[in-house]
Design a protein around this nucleic acid. Sequence first.
DNA 1: AGCTGGCGGGTTTTT
DNA 2: CCCGCCAGCT
Length: 771
Amino acid sequence: MAPPVSALDTELNPPQADAVAHTTGPLLVFAGAGSGKTRVITYRIANLVACARVPPHRILAVTFTNKAAGEMQNRLGRLLGEDLARDLWVGTFHATSARLLRRHGEALGLPRNFVIYDTDDQKAVVNRTLRALDLDEKRYPPRVCLAAIHKAKQELRGPDDMNVRDPWLVTIFRTYEEQLRTANAVDFEDLIGLMVTLLEQNPAGAGDALRRRFDYLLVDEFQDTNAAQYRFLKAFVRDHRNLCVVGDDDQSIYRWRGADVRNIRGFKHDFPDAHVVKLEQNYRSTGRIVRAALGVIERSHERVPKELWTANAEGAPIDIVATRDERDEAAHVLSTIQEARARGVDPKEIAVFYRVHAQSRVLEEALRSANVPYQIVGGTKFYERAEIKNALSYLRVLTNPASDIDVLRIINTPARGIGATSVERLAAFADRAHVSLMEALARIAEPRAGAATARTADLGAAAAGRLASFHALMDQLARRVANMPPSDLLGEVLERSGYLTALRAEDTAESEARLENLAELKSSLYDYEQEAVAAGEEVSLEGYLERVSLQSDVDGMKDGSRVTLMTVHGAKGLEFELVVLTGMEQDMFPYRGMNPGGDHELEEERRLAYVAITRARSRLVITHAETRQIFGTTRLGGPSPFLAQMPADAVTQKATAARGASSLGRFMTHDDGAGHGYAPWRHPQAPSPTPQPLPGERYVDQEFFHDGPGAADDTSGPALRRGARVVHAQFGEGEIKSVVESNEPAVVVAFPGRGEKKILARFLTLVGGGP
DNA sequence: AGCTGGCGGGTTTTT
DNA sequence: CCCGCCAGCT
């Protein structure tokens, strides 16, 4: 066995060096939060390549997100040089599987041009299935059906061995599978499941071929793998057993998605000879933050015992701030951020966390009106917008005409007179003939026999004509796929389909936004082409579509100098100088949706809180609100029980002025003047506490929350006012003429030489910064 | 055929 | 509160 790279050795503590030096056989690394996990993985790979002389293309590293994969590849580029690093296989389970299935999937009858159906597509398939089976979608809600299907597939179960009582669900599952297969489509679970089939059943020797590809496998965030993924790994390393898994059972937060923390806790059972390393020294956070995190996680039973510690300074106390409601909370978040910025903290080193996306809106409004640059990770995703999905459906049909779901999306988009009745008749005809919708269209569009076919399908001459011209359009476009780069093809698609014309004719702020989004889509295709060329990969429409399907929220995170707003789930694996953790209330965190919730769920919430706390390097501010408007109703939750579990000497209890005032208004009958003579703010769980306003605590700009004159239609906040100068990516600089009411903040801007245009606020940048 | 408005239902986290 | 679905209207 080769010794570790000596130059790296000095930068590693003993357990880290131990893990890096290990080469042959199974290795289990428990990596506590902030314990230098990524460093260990990258150095271990570097060690394998540089010392053990393993060719890079024979190493597969699996990460949780594409972004993490990219970062790992970058770091390895710096350690090993770009040439070697490029040959490494680094990617998510899904991206890696997709890539391998393109090459080996044919052994299972999966064509190379398969498409990946996202949740939306899957739901459409279930809806279609329900209609075909004539089932009431009230009794069989698509969401519920899909959840049952996913659960089964995550455990590698098929319709015959799924654990459900209702036989209809089995039928729905079976039909769903049939639809995917005939559409040459796979869902996320198939990507893993089909790989397992290849590896375990070895059709046409494909499993052996796959196994021979890699000598070493490394898996990050192993605590969040599911049963199928674990079986994938075991099948892959069957012959050499060179499997290194890295994770932290305390950070397992994806149980709801099928992740099974027993994979890491029971790893020793499957690999009794595994070398086990524990990384317990935290290099990231202050002493107080580490102790607060430990206070929460130590209440957990079931966990593998670990001693997380840090040699770092104690640092500032963690602020636990009681606020009146979510708006007061947002104001406090804002002032915390402003204060940090004033101290010179880069906005990109600041993050605001929440449990559920629904909490983000108020926070976003506060930041926007104060002109704080920010980005929201997750929520309504770019690729889920209707116009983007439509455009992508055109592209997908061009690569894979069998994908009926995509055909249904675009057949009458833009409106071309093909109504529901025509589509239904077409679908019925396709069904009888056992062909895809595109194939059915081709038959109807045939110059001679077409007319008779149309009659068979019960389609009138006019309808048949419109269907034929749709087919002609797609046929024409399909001929161009091979002849032009994908970004140009998109342009062709949008022009020739009439989609752009239709949107331009609409001429609303919304249609304008859709056009902008489509332009952005085109540039994302262009970016892909550039990157693929740079990485020496083949540029193909399929390649782009695959990337889009497998993109995650955090992948879209930009590196700009902006504050990040995200859910705690999204924050896994990241770290920030300052973290503001909001909504730490009973029922919000731990979150209770509508289900009663058992022990296991509380355990997962606890781990989630642990993840949230340990993202912070030097400063952590935690807020909770007395009342919270969410989903249209007001929630009243006391402080989260997790707060009481943080050591008293690690935290400082505070309250906003508004919180103090609200208690006064609500509980006192006499006017005593705010902030005087109240019982001290004792314990977060004390009943009806009366907080004492912190001396000197005040608000930046509390005023804007109380609608002033004209505030009602000025939804964009004070920043975008009449007369303000703004910059637009395409039209350049202009002046705001008026603020218009819309779903989204929008304004009319006069651009010199280009006239006035309605533009959504999010496409504009203010000139000159602050108001 | 396509639009609009009313209604009811669901609202976690996401590769 | 927001969305999607349906029915009824143009």
